[in-house]
Write a protein that binds this DNA or RNA. Structure first.
Lengths: 194, 194, 194, 194
DNA sequence: TATGAATGAGAGTTCATTCAT
DNA sequence: CATGAATGAACTCTCATTCAT
C-alpha cells in the first residue's frame, strides 16, 4: 500500500514537472496536471494540500536528489579545488540534461510569493552550505585566502552559477552550458585579475 | 499636454512601485494601483496596454535611471578597477536605499512569464553591456587576464551581485548591503585563491 | 446614479426572490440569479458581498416592507383586539398573495446556518416587538389578563401563525390561508382575554 | 446478524446526531460521521442510500421515540386537559434535556429541501394527530368549544410550542424551557376552553 | 482625456458517492 | 459485510479589461 501510495505521489510529481516546465506555474491548472498524471482532479488533493504544495514538494524532492549527487561525487574527489569544479560541473550538466527541471527551478519557482521563496530558500540551504563547507576547508588548507568572507562568497558563487544557467535558458539554450564550467571555475579560483 | 501626460504616466508608475513592493505583482490589482495613483481604473489603460506593461515600463524607467547613474559616476573615475568597484557600490547602495525598488526588481519582477522575462532581459542588457565594456577595457589595458571570456564573466559578475541582493532581501535586511562591496569586489578581482 | 444603482440592486433582489422560491437557496447558483436579473455574474458582487448577503438583504427589505404595512394598517384601527386581528390578517394575506416571498421566508430562509438565523432573528424582532406592544397595551387597558407573560405570549402568537403558513405551503396551498384568520384570532383572544 | 446490523445502524445514527448538532447538516461531511461512528465512509452507504437519508432516519427514529413517550405518559393521565399539559411538558423537557436532538430538530432539519420537508412532515404527523385526538376528545366531553376548528388548532398549538423551543435555542438557552409550560398551557386552555 | 460600472471567463477545491479488494 | 482510495461534477468569487458617458 505504501509503495503504491508512493507511486502515485511520484506519478503526480513527474506530471507536474512536465506541465510546469511547459506552461509555467500559474498557467498550469490542477486539472492539467491531473490529466497528465492520469488521475482525477480530486486525487491530487489526497496527496497535496494545495496546488503550491506540489511546487514545493517537487522542489524538495528534486533538490534533495541533486544535493545527494553532489555529496556522492565530491566524496570521490581528492582536493577542494577539484571538488569545487565538480560542484560547478554537476550544477551545469544536471540542468543541461534535464531541461524541464531547469525551467522549473530557474523560471517557475521564482514566480512565487515571498513566503514561498523563503520555503524554497530552506530547500536550497543544504546546497549553499555544501559550498560553504568547501570554502572553509580550502581556507584551512591554505588554498584559499585567509581573510575570505565565506558567508558572502558562498552567495557569490551560487549567484554566479545561477545567473549563467538562467541566462542560458532565456537565450534559448543556443550554446552548451557545460562548456562554461572551465571559465566559471577559473573565475572562481583566480578572479579576473591578470 | 505632453508634459501633463508624462506627469500622469509617472504618477501611475510611482504608485505601481509602491503597490508592487508592498503586495507583490500578482496580488496588486489594477484597481489598487489606480486608487494609489488617484486615477480611475480605466485611465490606467490610456497609458498602459496591459497590466504587465506597467511592470515592464517600471523596470525600464528605473533601470534606465540606474544605468544613467552608473555612466555618470564611471565617467568620473580614472581606472577600470575603480570603475568596477563603483558599479558594485552603486548596485548595492541604490537598492539598499530604495527598498521598494529592490523588492520589485529582485522578487516581483521574477514572478513573470518567460515572455516577460525576455522583455526584462532586454532592459537589463545595457547594464550587462556596461560591465562587459569595462571588462574589455581592462583586458586591453592588461589589467585583466588576456584569456578572459568576457561574455561569460559579465554574467558571473552580475549574477553574483544579484544573488547577494536577493539573499539580503529575503533574510529580512538584517545586515548592511553596502558593507558587502569590499568583499564582492575583492572576489571579482582576485578570486578566492590564496 | 444613485437611483440607477438602486434600480439594479432591486433588480437583482427581485430576480433572487424568484429563483430562491423556485429552486431553494442551496440550489440557486449565483449565475442563475444573474441570468434572471439580466446582469453578469460579477455584477452581483458589486452590490452584494457574498451569496448569503443576497438572502439576508432580501429578507431585510421584504420584512421591512411588511412591518411597514403592519404599522400603517394598525394606525387606522381603533382597538387592540382589532389591531391584533389586523396583524394576523396581514400576515396571512400578504404571504398568500406573494407565494414567492412565502416560500423564501418559510422554507428557504430556514435553510441557513445558526449564524445566519441569528441575523434573521434580528430582522424579525421588530415584528415580534410589534406584537408585544399590542399585548402590553391590551393588558394596560384590562382587555387581556393581568398576569399575561408577554415575552412568552408574543412567541406563542408568532409561532402559531408561522406554523399555519408553513403547513399551508407544504400542503401545496390546497386551501385558503386567509380563511384561517377567524379561527386563529379567536384562539388568540380567548387565550389572552381577561 | 440482524441485531448486529441494527447495532451498527444505530451507531451511525447516534454519531450523526452528535455531528449534525455540532456542525449543522451542510457542514457535516459523511466522512466526519463515519469517523465519529468508527466505521469506514463506504459503510455508511450499506445502511443509508444517501446522506439525506441519515437525516430523515434520524428524525423518524427520534420522533418515534418521542411519540412513544407521549402515548405512554398520556395513558397514565385521567383528563384531556391534564393530557394536553403533559404533551407540552414532554415537548419542552425532552428537548431541554437533549440539546443535541433539539438542535437537529429545530435548526438542522429545517435546512433541507422542500422534498425533504415533506418527508419530515410525514414523521411529525403522528404527533400532530395525537394533539388533534386530544382536541376532538375535549370537544366531545364539552371541555373545549364546540365550534373549535381542530385541524387549524392542532397547527396553532404545535406551532406555538415549536417557536418557543426554537427561540429558546437561538437565544442561547439562557432561561429554563420547562418553566414555560405553565404559561403555554394556560394560553392554550383559555383559547380552546368552552 | 477621464471615468468607473459592468463584464464574464476562469480555476482551485470540496465532498457525496462508488467499487475493487 | 467492510473498507477507504479514487472519482469528477459542481460552484463561488476574483479581477483584468472594456466602453458608454
Amino acid at each position: 500500500m505504501t509503495s503504491k501510495k508512493k507511486e502515485k505521489y511520484d506519478l503526480i510529481l513527474e506530471a507536474a514537472l512536465k506541465v510546469f516546465a511547459e506552461h509555467g506555474f500559474h498557467r498550469s491548472q490542477v486539472s492539467k496536471i491531473a490529466k497528465a498524471a492520469g488521475v482525477a482532479d480530486g486525487t491530487i488533493y489526497l496527496y497535496f494540500k494545495r496546488k503550491e504544495d506540489i511546487l514545493i514538494s517537487l522542489f524538495r524532492e528534486k533538490l534533495g536528489e541533486l544535493v545527494g549527487k553532489f555529496h556522492m561525487h565530491i566524496e570521490q574527489t581528492t582536493g577542494v579545488k577539484e571538488a569545487l569544479r565538480k560542484v560547478c560541473e554537476i550544477h551545469y550538466t544536471e540542468l543541461e540534461n534535464n531541461v524541464d527541471l531547469a525551467f522549473v527551478t530557474q523560471i517557475e519557482l521564482r514566480q512565487s510569493s515571498l513566503e514561498l521563496r523563503k520555503e524554497i530558500g530552506k530547500a536550497v540551504k543544504p546546497y549553499i552550505e555544501l559550498i560553504e563547507k568547501l570554502l572553509v576547508q580550502g581556507v584551512e588548507e591554505n588554498l584559499f585566502r585567509a581573510d575570505l568572507d565565506v558567508k558572502l562568497t558562498r552567495l557569490l558563487l551560487f549567484g554566479a552559477m545561477d545567473e549563467v544557467v538562467t541566462s542560458w535558458l532565456i537565450s534559448g539554450r543556443k550554446y552548451s552550458l557545460s562548456a562554461q564550467v572551465d571559465g566559471t571555475v577559473q573565475f572562481f579560483l583566480q578572479g579576473i585579475q591578470a
